[in-house]
């Protein structure tokens, strides 16, 4: 059997044969960077400490686990990835990698990441990573994404676990502090994605993904963004009940929540005609602000931890 017949059977286009970068793209490197950053923050702010090499290894395992779930997501969602403009150039719809290859890579890396994290750290961190992969692939991708407009809300949990895993890699436990870091990302995910959906509506509509903007309209989405943003501010403030928050966190929390709530109110007050007229300027600005929101919150926690260790300030 020649190489050509193999390609015909697998449905792969040999004129666009996959390179190493195409397999790497299956791991969703951009999503992985958020996973790495928040897991790193969880690991740094956890009480006690971990050997730097073990910490590095743990972050690597969490990143690989996150990447593996991305590959499994692309395996399952390849049909809708072909339809949406944003995802048409992914390796499977582009004909570079077959679905079976993505499935194999995803399952192998998932197992590898969980087992190695267990060996390097502890079973709590490994179990959390395994649950995260299960939640993202089975609960979100297979279960919720195509069925309910609340897909983003519940599915957002998968993206919220990394700081908890980083924390557990050091301490081997789950505490109020790590749960609040989880809640920070969990409550942030809906306004973040819904603001994106406000100006990317056509893509989800075409793929028949029940995004809130498609099922309930943009007015309802703007209402939801405001409610979740206010709830998010509450969870951001709740961090002061833990020994993690210091002066840096106070400054970031006050400034970012004020800006975020102000932005959500601005979106809530706008209607479609106004948004279309200015090219969704406020929606795009809110989306960008949401990226800075998470980044600065976790940065502040790490800065406070560093300040505490040098004897500056202390938890409230």
């Amino acid at each position: 059997m020649t190489d050509v017949t193999i390609s015909l059977e697998s449905g792969r286009d040999d004129s666009r044969e996959a390179g190493f970068g195409d397999y790497f793209a299956l791991l969703k490197p951009r999503v992985m960077s958020l996973v790495v950053f928040t897991a790193f923050a969880g690991l740094i702010v956890a009480p006690g400490g971990v050997h730097p090499f073990v910490g590095f290894f743990a972050i690597l395992c969490i990143a690989i686990g996150g990447g593996a779930s991305g590959a499994l997501n692309m395996w399952y969602d390849s049909d809708i990835d072909r339809v949406m403009k944003r995802t048409q150039s992914r390796p499977i719809p582009a004909g570079k990698v077959t679905r079976e290859e993505a499935l194999g890579l995803g399952l192998t890396l998932s197992t590898f990441a969980v087992v190695m994290l267990w060996l390097a750290t502890n079973w709590v961190a490994a179990a959390l990573l395994a649950f995260t992969i299960f939640f993202y692939v089975v609960v979100y991708t297979m279960g919720l994404k195509r069925r309910t407009p609340q897909n983003i809300v519940i599915g957002g949990a998968a993206g919220a676990f990394p700081p908890m895993i980083g924390w557990a890699a050091v301490t081997g436990d789950i505490t109020l502090s790590s749960v609040l870091m989880f809640m920070l990302i969990f409550m942030w995910t809906p306004p973040h994605f819904w603001s994106l959906a406000l100006f990317m509506n056509a893509d989800y509509d075409k793929a028949r993904v029940p995004m809130l903007t498609v099922t309930h309209g943009k007015r309802a989405t703007r209402n939801h963004i405001l409610v979740y943003t206010i709830l998010l501010a509450g969870f951001s403030a709740a961090m002061f009940a833990t020994p993690l928050a210091g002066w840096s966190y106070l400054v970031v929390a006050v400034v970012m929540n004020a800006l975020f709530v102000k932005g959500a109110i601005a979106l809530w007050r706008r209607d479609e005609a106004v948004a279309e007229a200015d090219g969704y300027r406020a929606e795009k600005a809110f989306f960008k602000l949401s990226l800075a929101y998470t980044f600065l919150h976790f940065m502040a926690l790490m800065v406070d931890k560093a300040l505490f260790s040098f004897g500056f300030g202390g938890p409230f």
């Binding site: 044969e17 996959a18 390179g19 190493f20 970068g21 397999y23 790497f24 050997h51 090499f53 073990v54 290894f57 690597l60 060996l119 390097a120």
Partner: peptide, 30 residues
């Protein structure tokens, strides 16, 4: 297939180095 073969070789090499490092840290430091 040069790109994927070289890439896989580097990944496997890195894995060996990481496992070696982890073993050394676990045994001698921790």
């Amino acid at each position: 297939r040069r790109s994927r073969n070289v890439g896989l070789g580097l990944v496997l090499g890195a894995f060996v180095v990481l496992l070696m490092g982890l073993t050394v840290v676990k045994v001698t430091v921790l």
